[in-house]
Design a protein around this nucleic acid. Structure first.
Lengths: 146, 146
DNA sequence: TCGGACATGTCAACCAGTTAACTTGTTGGC
DNA sequence: GCCAACAAGTTAACTGGTTGACATGTCCGA
């Protein structure tokens, strides 16, 4: 229960991630970061390593290294682009799409349930989202260093 | 500009961290994570590896591995507890305390300046902090998995 | 058409975290 | 007083991220 907003923000995302991670691990057999990878890919498939890396906000190398494991586990497929020798086309398997669908709904329900709690009285997720987005855009327009 | 609150939260802390990191690197010659380490230690010194690890929310091993580099860089000192052969007592150097003081004030000023921006109209950091702390406590009392 | 610039993916080396196993020191019950 | 249990720190093996160097493929302009 810090009084520093920056600390509170870090703490909240940590608790949020832990809670999502334990739900995903227990009920769906994937880690949180695997789920983010698969769900993000599902949103933009078919695509290549470079584009997915941008969507995930990580480097190409990071994506490149994680792909073999996810293919192995049956969540993702790779293919060669016939029109481009180097391009690797990534897609989600049927099982992966099903995971994203079911687990995504589950997470969403858990999350919106938070705001039904009496202690969240007067808290509107949409309003909060707008406020945080405002802060983000202020920070962004200030440049990396104001 | 996502409409998913969870995504927005992750985005905000990422932008926040980037901005703090570039300020710290440019003006003080430390990375963000080094600053967090030193500032946290400054808050509880003198202490040992185990306690600092708890304060930072990481494992003892993580702290143990980072200490030599910070000692080398002149931010931290180590000593042996005369009353306990294994215990390593960690403290911040004078230069470290000065860093925490000056950079801490700088970061704080930058952060509170955010809320002076016209786009942050009606946004009160204290209120926001309370709201986020409410969400944290709801999540915590729901247990790791509800 | 062909050569340079750019795009794409991978690799190596590194950093910072994890857990599990281990060494070493302290302490308390018998 | 001794031994078992515990506490403290380090190490090794792993994970997943980074940057920089590299090989290879595409494409455009002279």
């Amino acid at each position: 229960m810090s009084d520093k907003l920056t600390f509170t923000l870090h703490e909240l995302v940590q608790v949020l991630d832990m809670s999502a991670d334990s739900l995903l691990t227990a009920k769906y057999g994937v880690t949180g970061s695997q789920f983010v990878f698969i769900a993000t890919l599902a949103d933009v498939e078919p695509t290549d390593v470079t584009t997915l890396a941008e969507c995930l906000g990580v480097s190409k190398a990071a994506v490149s290294k994680r792909v073999p494991g996810l293919v192995e586990a049956g969540w993702v497929t790779t293919a060669h682009d016939p029109h481009h020798g180097r391009r690797v086309v990534l897609a989600v398997t049927e099982r992966g799409r099903d995971l994203v669908d079911r687990a995504g709904r589950d997470l969403d329900a858990q999350f919106t349930a938070l705001f039904a709690h009496p202690a969240a009285e007067g808290l509107d997720p949409a309003v909060l989202n707008d406020q945080l987005n405002s802060l983000i855009s202020i920070l962004r327009q200030n440049g990396p260093l104001s």
